[in-house]
């Protein structure tokens, strides 16, 4: 293990110890701020109710991310093939992106009867834009000399897309994917909150709401920890994917030598 990994872990343990000590010394009651040990105990004790909720939130997040990859990626390719399509549709993609999800989530939940589907749509709305805009940027960031070369040897649009534009766009796409991974989780949680106020959801956000109604603050923290851990896990997995795909050739993933 390198200092790069040890430093944040040491700092984290130190902060947790400070937190625990502070709660105990100041005598703060658990319904205001539970100490980390109590949160950990609650996490184990309530695992039976928290685990299914984690699964619900995780499923929606991953489905939304998958939909964002497919729809964002396909739209980016279509936009790169047709300037008119891009000019016509891109502004609407921007509108979808800049409208706060909290504001449209109630509408979507009203319009779409299926709860899971409405949550999925909300999370997807938040997640797809970074993939779309990054992939468009990548598809355009092609070495003009290579474009000349493809033209010189008579490559058509399809050949140029598959052998030149797509590989050139890969690092940009993966950058967008890492942002979208976190956003999909945020979108899922926000949508659950909105749906949860109506009482018909079962994800981690709903557990937080429920715990706050019942003043079960340690369980609220436990659910929060799970949400953060999920976000971190998604980020790490996508970073690993990024590293594996780019380490041989892209500057961002190449480890410096010597």
């Amino acid at each position: 293990m390198t200092a790069k990994a040890i430093a944040p872990i040491v700092l984290g343990l130190l902060m947790l110890a400070l937190w625990e000590a502070g709660v105990r010394l100041a005598g703060i009651p658990p319904y205001i701020l539970p100490g980390p040990i109590l949160v950990a105990e609650t996490l184990v004790k309530d695992w039976g109710t928290l685990a299914p909720s984690l699964l619900v939130t995780l499923t929606i997040t991953l489905e939304a991310l998958a939909a964002a990859v497919v729809i964002g990626g396909v739209l980016a390719v279509l936009f790169s093939l047709s300037r008119w399509l891009e000019l016509s549709l891109f502004p609407y993609a921007v509108i979808l992106q800049v409208t706060p999800i909290v504001a449209i989530a109630p509408l979507i939940i009203v319009w779409v009867n299926d709860v899971d589907l409405s949550l999925l749509i909300c999370a997807w709305l938040v997640a797809f834009f970074p993939i779309l805009s990054n992939t468009i940027l990548g598809l355009r960031s092609v070495d003009p000399g290579l474009l000349d070369l493809f033209q010189l040897y008579g490559a058509g649009r399809w050949r140029t897309l598959v052998d030149l534009r797509l590989p050139a766009a890969l690092p940009y796409f993966l950058g967008g994917l890492r942002i979208s991974g976190g956003l999909a989780l945020i979108g899922a949680v926000v949508a659950e909150f909105v749906a949860g106020t109506g009482g018909n959801a079962s994800g981690l956000a709903w557990r937080i709401l429920e715990s706050s109604y019942q003043l079960q603050i340690p369980r609220m923290f436990a659910a929060l920890v799970l949400i953060s851990a999920t976000g971190i896990a998604i980020f790490l997995v996508l970073s690993l994917l990024n590293h594996l795909l780019l380490r041989r050739w892209h500057e961002s993933a190449v480890t410096p030598e010597g």
Binding site: G145, D148, R159, A168, H250
Partner: peptide
Amino acid sequence: FVFQEPTLMPWTTALKNVGLPLKLR
């Protein structure tokens, strides 16, 4: 055609880069 820059595809090997014109043909 040899350009001012090497203009190679960074994501693939020297062999694949050299074989590109043949692939396109």
